[in-house]
Measured scan of single mutants.
Amino acid sequence: LNLKQAKEEAIKELVDAGIAEKYIKLIANAKTVEGVWTLKDEILTFTV
């Protein structure tokens, strides 16, 4: 999975969960695949 694909998957998951745009922007700015997954997990843990 490359960075672009990771971001697309994570953003789709966050949108489906009804997460606010400000958190989705954090994913869009992530620099690594690991960073994308870590941010996604943290956002889902603390906002859902």
Results as ranks from 00 to 15, higher is better:
residue 14 L to P: 00
residue 26 L to T: 04
residue 44 L to K: 05
residue 37 W to N: 09
residue 10 A to N: 01
residue 21 E to L: 12
residue 3 L to K: 01
residue 30 A to Q: 08
residue 44 L to A: 04
residue 40 K to S: 04
residue 11 I to K: 05
residue 3 L to V: 05
residue 10 A to T: 04
residue 30 A to E: 06
residue 26 L to Y: 06
residue 6 A to G: 01
residue 10 A to V: 06
residue 9 E to P: 00
residue 31 K to Q: 13
residue 35 G to W: 10
residue 21 E to R: 10
residue 22 K to E: 12
residue 18 G to L: 04
residue 4 K to N: 08
residue 11 I to H: 03
residue 45 T to Q: 14
residue 9 E to Y: 14
residue 17 A to H: 09
residue 13 E to K: 06
residue 19 I to F: 07
residue 39 L to D: 00
residue 45 T to C: 13
residue 6 A to T: 05
residue 36 V to Y: 01
residue 8 E to V: 09
residue 29 N to S: 12
residue 34 E to F: 07
residue 9 E to N: 08
residue 26 L to P: 02
residue 38 T to M: 14
residue 45 T to G: 14
residue 22 K to F: 12
residue 22 K to Q: 09
residue 29 N to F: 14
residue 5 Q to Y: 08
residue 40 K to E: 02
residue 24 I to S: 03
residue 24 I to E: 02
residue 18 G to C: 06
residue 47 T to V: 15
residue 27 I to A: 01
residue 23 Y to H: 04
residue 15 V to D: 04
residue 40 K to N: 02
residue 38 T to F: 14
residue 39 L to M: 08
residue 47 T to I: 14
residue 32 T to Y: 03
residue 27 I to V: 08
residue 6 A to W: 04
residue 28 A to P: 02
residue 40 K to A: 06
residue 24 I to H: 07
residue 8 E to N: 07
residue 29 N to K: 11
residue 28 A to H: 15
residue 10 A to L: 04
residue 33 V to R: 03
residue 42 E to A: 14
residue 12 K to S: 06
residue 18 G to N: 06
residue 5 Q to D: 06
residue 22 K to M: 10
residue 21 E to P: 11
residue 48 V to T: 13
residue 22 K to N: 07
residue 1 L to C: 10
residue 12 K to P: 00
residue 44 L to N: 03
residue 4 K to D: 08
residue 7 K to M: 13
residue 28 A to W: 15
residue 21 E to F: 09
residue 45 T to Y: 12
residue 47 T to S: 13
residue 38 T to Q: 15
residue 18 G to E: 03
residue 35 G to N: 11
residue 48 V to C: 14
residue 48 V to R: 12
residue 40 K to T: 07
residue 22 K to H: 13
residue 34 E to T: 07
residue 36 V to G: 00
residue 16 D to Y: 11
residue 26 L to C: 10
residue 16 D to E: 14
residue 15 V to R: 15
residue 47 T to R: 11
residue 29 N to E: 12
residue 29 N to C: 13
residue 15 V to C: 11
residue 45 T to M: 14
residue 17 A to P: 01
residue 8 E to W: 10
residue 36 V to M: 03
residue 33 V to Q: 03
residue 42 E to K: 15
residue 16 D to K: 15
residue 33 V to G: 01
residue 27 I to K: 00
residue 2 N to Q: 13
residue 16 D to M: 15
residue 11 I to T: 06
residue 13 E to P: 01
residue 22 K to G: 07
residue 41 D to A: 13
residue 17 A to N: 07
residue 43 I to M: 05
residue 22 K to V: 11
residue 33 V to L: 07
residue 16 D to C: 11
residue 46 F to Q: 09
residue 9 E to A: 15
residue 23 Y to S: 02
residue 38 T to E: 10
residue 39 L to F: 04
residue 30 A to P: 02
residue 3 L to G: 00
residue 39 L to W: 04
residue 23 Y to G: 01
residue 34 E to R: 06
residue 46 F to I: 11
residue 2 N to G: 10
residue 31 K to Y: 08
residue 1 L to I: 11
residue 43 I to C: 03
residue 26 L to A: 06
residue 15 V to E: 09
residue 32 T to N: 05
residue 26 L to V: 05
residue 3 L to A: 02
residue 2 N to L: 14
residue 6 A to C: 06
residue 45 T to S: 15
residue 15 V to L: 14
residue 19 I to S: 04
residue 46 F to D: 06
residue 14 L to H: 01
residue 3 L to D: 00
residue 10 A to F: 02
residue 34 E to V: 07
residue 12 K to Q: 08
residue 8 E to Q: 10
residue 37 W to E: 06
residue 36 V to N: 01
residue 24 I to D: 01
residue 46 F to Y: 12
residue 38 T to G: 08
residue 15 V to G: 05
residue 32 T to E: 03
residue 21 E to V: 09
residue 25 K to V: 13
residue 11 I to N: 02
residue 32 T to K: 02
residue 42 E to V: 11
residue 8 E to M: 12
residue 48 V to D: 10
residue 9 E to L: 14
residue 11 I to L: 05
residue 15 V to N: 08
residue 6 A to M: 04
residue 43 I to L: 11
residue 33 V to T: 05
residue 10 A to D: 00
residue 40 K to V: 15
residue 12 K to T: 05
residue 18 G to W: 03
residue 30 A to I: 05
residue 12 K to G: 04
residue 14 L to A: 03
residue 33 V to C: 05
residue 26 L to R: 06
residue 48 V to P: 08
residue 42 E to C: 15
residue 6 A to Q: 04
residue 23 Y to M: 05
residue 28 A to K: 11
residue 36 V to W: 01
residue 20 A to Y: 05
residue 12 K to Y: 04
residue 20 A to S: 11
residue 13 E to H: 08
residue 7 K to S: 02
residue 30 A to G: 03
residue 10 A to Y: 01
residue 11 I to D: 00
residue 25 K to R: 13
residue 5 Q to V: 08
residue 48 V to F: 12
residue 20 A to N: 09
residue 36 V to I: 05
residue 6 A to F: 04
residue 44 L to Y: 06
residue 39 L to Y: 04
residue 31 K to D: 11
residue 26 L to M: 11
residue 30 A to L: 06
residue 4 K to V: 09
residue 6 A to D: 01
residue 42 E to P: 00
residue 27 I to Y: 00
residue 30 A to V: 07
residue 46 F to A: 09
residue 1 L to D: 10
residue 30 A to H: 02
residue 31 K to F: 06
residue 17 A to V: 05
residue 48 V to Q: 13
residue 36 V to T: 03
residue 4 K to H: 08
residue 8 E to P: 01
residue 24 I to R: 05
residue 23 Y to T: 02
residue 23 Y to C: 08
residue 31 K to N: 09
residue 29 N to Y: 13
residue 46 F to P: 04
residue 48 V to M: 14
residue 13 E to M: 14
residue 2 N to T: 15
residue 39 L to G: 01
residue 42 E to T: 09
residue 19 I to V: 15
residue 47 T to F: 15
residue 34 E to Y: 07
residue 17 A to E: 04
residue 32 T to L: 02
residue 19 I to M: 06
residue 34 E to M: 07
residue 15 V to S: 09
residue 34 E to H: 07
residue 40 K to D: 01
residue 19 I to T: 05
residue 27 I to R: 00
residue 46 F to M: 14
residue 31 K to S: 13
residue 27 I to F: 04
residue 23 Y to D: 02
residue 15 V to Q: 14
residue 12 K to L: 06
residue 13 E to A: 11
residue 43 I to Q: 00
residue 4 K to T: 09
residue 47 T to Q: 11
residue 17 A to K: 12
residue 38 T to V: 12
residue 25 K to Q: 12
residue 44 L to S: 03
residue 35 G to M: 15
residue 33 V to H: 03
residue 7 K to W: 03
residue 10 A to E: 01
residue 9 E to M: 15
residue 32 T to H: 03
residue 41 D to T: 11
residue 29 N to H: 10
residue 19 I to A: 11
residue 37 W to R: 10
residue 6 A to R: 02
residue 24 I to T: 06
residue 36 V to D: 00
residue 27 I to H: 00
residue 19 I to Q: 02
residue 10 A to H: 00
residue 15 V to T: 13
residue 23 Y to P: 00
residue 22 K to D: 07
residue 5 Q to I: 11
residue 47 T to N: 12
residue 45 T to A: 15
residue 47 T to M: 15
residue 29 N to P: 02
residue 41 D to W: 14
residue 17 A to Q: 07
residue 30 A to T: 04
residue 26 L to W: 11
residue 42 E to W: 15
residue 37 W to Q: 11
residue 8 E to S: 08
residue 21 E to N: 08
residue 5 Q to S: 07
residue 30 A to M: 09
residue 38 T to S: 12
residue 37 W to I: 08
residue 10 A to K: 00
residue 47 T to W: 15
residue 41 D to H: 13
residue 28 A to D: 11
residue 34 E to L: 09
residue 4 K to M: 10
residue 4 K to C: 08
residue 28 A to N: 12
